[in-house]
Amino acid sequence: MENGKIAIPSNGQGGLDGTRAGHFGHCDVFTLVDVENGEIKEVSILQNQEHVQGGCMVPVNLLSDNSVNALIVGGIGMRPLMGFKQVGIDVYHDDQRAEIEPVVKDLIAGKLTEISNDQVCGGGGGQM
């Protein structure tokens, strides 16, 4: 990624040195990373909203409204995945690492793959 804004579902206060939340709909905050010319330009925090059954489109609209281009998840349900795709947010997958910074750097370097439709899970989340 040369330019854009990356969102990472995060635990606690988030931030580049924080840890990723395994269930994106229930994460505490989203860590947002602005990328310019392939470099991290700014890191900010976006508070998540309450998650209720069927409320999968709330975080989709929240991230869309905040001009996010890419999301990194450990897992995701079919409806939010389709929602993100339909609002133009690319969804990338890493279910191995709990730390935020290395997956962000891998996305910028083009080393993360987009999640496929057959990798979706129930519950809108996944395990890392």
Binding site: S44, L46, G55, L62
Partner: peptide, 9 residues
């Protein structure tokens, strides 16, 4: 909930 955007940006 959707109306309660609380950005700490």
């Amino acid at each position: 909930i959707a109306g309660e955007t609380n950005s700490l940006k």
